[in-house]
Design a protein around this nucleic acid. Structure first.
Lengths: 210, 210
DNA sequence: TGTACATCAGTGAACGCGCGTTCACTGATGTAC
DNA sequence: TGTACATCAGTGAACGCGCGTTCACTGATGTAC
């Protein structure tokens, strides 16, 4: 008895944290812990494929089936992370420029913030805008990602409309270019990219030129 | 005996093609068949993760271990595909513009060809320039990908150097933008992208402006 | 204040899956005599 | 021309792995009497 107990106790596996079971009525707390751990693992380790329910459970200090009390499916959990992060990114972009600024400065500030976000959290960025986004049903139409795009489109429209240029096309060009900067810099790490902000400024200024 | 033989024969599983074993001395033929099948599967099904040795074997009509006679590892097989495709892409880009054209037209033609390649073969493109390229050791430095980049860089340099602009930075901007066009159009399929060539032309012309 | 009980957060074992890779082998082919 | 043999292209069974998901359950907690 004693020896068995002490074995089990000593034998503590991977889980970093010692957990105390939530009290009845507080089960919802685990939900938050799960999302937080999953988000951190995704941010650290870079790709959705490497994110497993078992790994998340290990990080939280529970067993994998316990996740099913809060998420019916791995995809449901991913969707929760993604929604949170989309909202966070939108807030970041919105906050990157005061609305009093002139439109070109707004675009520049938001472009820098967008790219920085992508490079700082490649795993998160990939889930929001990479191939994984596709089969998560997070494509443009009607999704929270639309809100993020609107934060680029709006100031671009302020610049283009008076000029008679097509704002949607120009904002799309810009989005694509910024995405490319994030994606290629993340992947082609041996390439002599040079400093980030000057590149973003060059791209923004030229793509918005008449 | 008979029944067993006929069962085995009738019971023919997935493999599409009926194969006749190569004769001694002709084992090398299988190598080419494997690469071809793997390349096709990758081009069709879109992502490296979904490409398995067992799937390739099924497509060729052999068993998975037979692959090991020709490739010591799944990665070795991927590397063979990638090298072939890099060379093919370089040829396509080189052929997209006659060297007599003026540099701006060369860039435009190669940019269109690059983007078209990426959109027509998303699975291949992803292995060449996506996140998978990273851990395959196919990053920029010293790789065949460098040859592809040089095909953009050279005409850009012709344009920039007389002007005193930095060709490497401008070519990098362009590469990133083109990559973004490919990646986002592949992923965000619900977005109102508009026609491809006009977008590529807009991006090229503006990013090369002074 | 003390006991019986219902609740429910979380466990542990098991499922079937497809994967990359290993290993000992089979059996048709071309060759040597 | 016919037989014995070595070669070697490819097989089939098995390995251990981590995965998402299911299921019957345990046992600490708060509550009712």
């Amino acid at each position: 008895m004693f020896s068995r107990l002490s074995t089990v106790t000593t034998d503590q596996p991977r889980p970093a944290a010692r957990r105390t079971r939530n009290r009845p009525g507080e089960g919802e707390r685990l939900r938050a812990e799960i999302v937080q751990a999953a988000d951190r693992l995704l941010a650290d380790a870079g790709s959705v494929e490497r994110l497993s329910l078992r790994g998340i459970a290990r990080a939280v200090g529970i067993t994998a089936p316990a996740i099913y009390a809060h998420f019916s499916t791995k995809e449901a959990l991913l969707a929760a992370i993604v929604e949170r992060r989309f909202a966070g990114l939108a807030d970041t972009l919105a906050g990157a420029a005061s609305s009093a600024d002139e439109p070109r400065a707004v675009v520049r500030a938001r472009a820098r913030a967008y790219v920085r976000f992508g490079l700082e959290h490649p795993g998160i960025y990939a889930v929001l805008f990479g191939p994984a986004a596709d089969h998560l049903g997070l494509a443009y139409s009607g999704s929270p990602g639309e809100r993020v795009f609107a934060l680029l489109l709006d100031p671009v429209a302020e610049l283009m409309t008076p000029r008679g240029d097509d704002p949607l096309a120009r904002a799309a060009d810009l989005w694509a270019a910024l995405h490319g900067v994030v994606a290629l810099r993340s992947t082609q790490t041996g390439f002599p990219w040079g400093d980030l902000d000057p590149q973003v400024d060059r791209v923004v200024d030229r793509l918005l030129a008449s």
